[in-house]
């Protein structure tokens, strides 16, 4: 187990270097000159431009720039954005918001998704099953921005239940609707996945044994069925947490949530290399750690899985 974790952590190093390098190269090959953009419509003074370029290290070869960035990163320095603010500061503002939003969405998805999945799996073919199946299909087929705008239009403008955009990005009450929109797609997937595994395991031989043992229904479902059915669901949930963190760009944009998605979007638009690379780097790390945790959890739930 210890060796497995060590190996997985070591494997993260090339993945980490590879992804950051790729992002770095892509961001700096984007069209447009960020330094020129700083001057807006005014004509840029060549001397100032050269000075700024030198200051940000933009006059050096790309690989040297990357090396400088990487060495800085290892010392905890994410560099400076072109507005002069340290990228670390930007992220310190944005990440707590996105983590809240993502965890909120994740909570909805886990609780509601598993509950609905269990219910429909146990009542397969009944009315409630059909209803939930159709609803999840609808959610899966609607793009998230449509869902977001619909929620904003009806709940925000028409009925005035919520403010159309989020005023205070740290306020959980205001984050509720964005969280539902963000989690809706995964909620539908979790429901369907749970339903399938529940229905499948319900027919398993060991469930017949549990019945023959005279166990009460609560125990048969709560202990014997749940443990087995949730194994694939947990795998999905683990990778999905990473997706929720990074995939909130659209939702955050619609509801004006000042999180990572919004910050990242603005940074891409203004060719803010250091900010983009910094945020993506952290997201990659989150993703890597999440998948490691899932793999470890997997073995806790299923004793047949051995680390090799």
């Amino acid at each position: 187990m210890g060796r497995y974790v060590a190996r997985r952590l070591l494997q993260m190093i090339p993945v980490f270097i590879g992804t950051t390098l790729l992002i770095f190269l892509m961001v700096y090959s984007l069209p447009g000159d960020p330094i020129a953009a700083l001057f807006g419509d005014k004509a840029a003074d060549p001397a100032t431009v050269a000075r700024l370029r030198h200051e940000y290290g933009l006059d050096q070869p790309l690989l040297v720039q990357y090396w400088n960035y990487l060495t800085g990163l290892l010392q905890g320095d994410f560099g400076q954005s072109f507005t002069g603010r340290p990228v670390a500061d930007l992220m310190a503002d944005a990440f707590p918001v996105t983590i809240r939003l993502a965890l909120f969405a994740f909570g909805i998805e886990v609780v509601l998704g598993i509950a609905l999945g269990m219910l429909t799996g146990l009542k397969r073919g009944k009315f409630i099953d059909q209803l939930v199946l159709v609803l999840t299909l609808v959610v899966i087929s609607i793009p998230v921005f449509v869902l977001g705008f619909l929620a904003q239009f009806f709940l925000g403008f028409k009925w005035g239940v919520i403010t159309p955009t989020v005023q205070d990005s740290m306020n959980l009450g205001q984050l509720a609707v964005p969280a539902v929109v963000l989690g809706a797609l995964s909620l539908a997937y979790v429901t369907r996945l749970t339903r399938t595994t529940v229905a499948e395991n319900l027919r398993a031989d060991y469930m017949r044994t549990a019945l023959a043992k005279g166990l009460p229904t609560r125990r048969r479902i709560g202990v014997h069925l749940m443990r087995n059915s949730l194994i694939p669901v947990i795998t999905f949930l683990g990778t999905d947490l990473g997706m929720l963190m990074g995939g909130a760009i659209v939702t955050e944009g619609i509801f004006n949530v000042q999180g990572v998605g919004n910050t990242l979007y603005r940074a891409i638009q203004t060719s803010e290399g250091p900010t983009v690379v910094g945020i993506v780097t952290v997201l990659v790390l989150v993703y890597l750690v999440a998948s490691l945790v899932v793999d470890l959890l997997y073995a806790v739930l299923d004793p047949r899985i051995r680390y090799a």
């Binding site: 031989d205 060991y206 017949r208 044994t209 014997h224 443990r227 299923d302």
Partner: peptide, 15 residues
């Protein structure tokens, strides 16, 4: 009480 044919699938794999 009942004993089933295939003990591997008749026992719960995760308990």
């Amino acid at each position: 009480a009942m004993i089933f044919q295939d003990a591997l699938s008749s026992l719960n794999p995760v308990l």
